[in-house]
Amino acid sequence: MKESEPSMSWSQRRSPQWLQKTPAARRYAFRLSWAIFAFVVLSFGLSYLSFHGFHPKGIVAYLFAVLPAIAIIATLVSGGMYLGEETDEFQRHLFVQSILWGVGGIMVLTSVWGWLQLYTHIGHFFTIWTFPFFLVFQSVSWQALRWRNR
């Protein structure tokens, strides 16, 4: 079955030219939104269940624990699909650059945090925050790169 094409929204048509997305970028935004939505629902859903006394044991505990990771995999897959579908090589180039910024940003953040944990009383950095922070760094740098090359 052919995936429905997310059409250009009213806000897209009205937005500055540099903010307008290619068809592949619109599909990426559509898939990413769903993956993030799933991540939030699964993460908060598990927290809610755990708070209300749901503590599965054995293999079920493992399965529930990795559920949010499925949504993370979906965001990575949507990024990979975008790179495969984007016909504009310069836009692909900007996206790859933004991934490097995202990786660099999260590596700097976690490294600095790690050293701070060793020598100060700063709180523990939960590794489950690694991916959301990466996504924030990557998304912000992608928009910044698109703005710089508008």
């Binding site: 030219q17 540099w18 290619t22 016909t87 504009d88 090589e89 310069f90 836009q91 180039h93 698109r146 090359n149 508008r150």
Partner: peptide, 22 residues
């Protein structure tokens, strides 16, 4: 060329070198 205007601008200003096919 079936590319974005940003691509044309980046190539014109020398910020980006196009691939051989482009």
């Amino acid at each position: 060329l079936e590319v974005s205007r940003q691509s044309v601008n980046a190539i014109e200003t020398g910020k980006y070198d196009p691939s051989l096919p482009l």
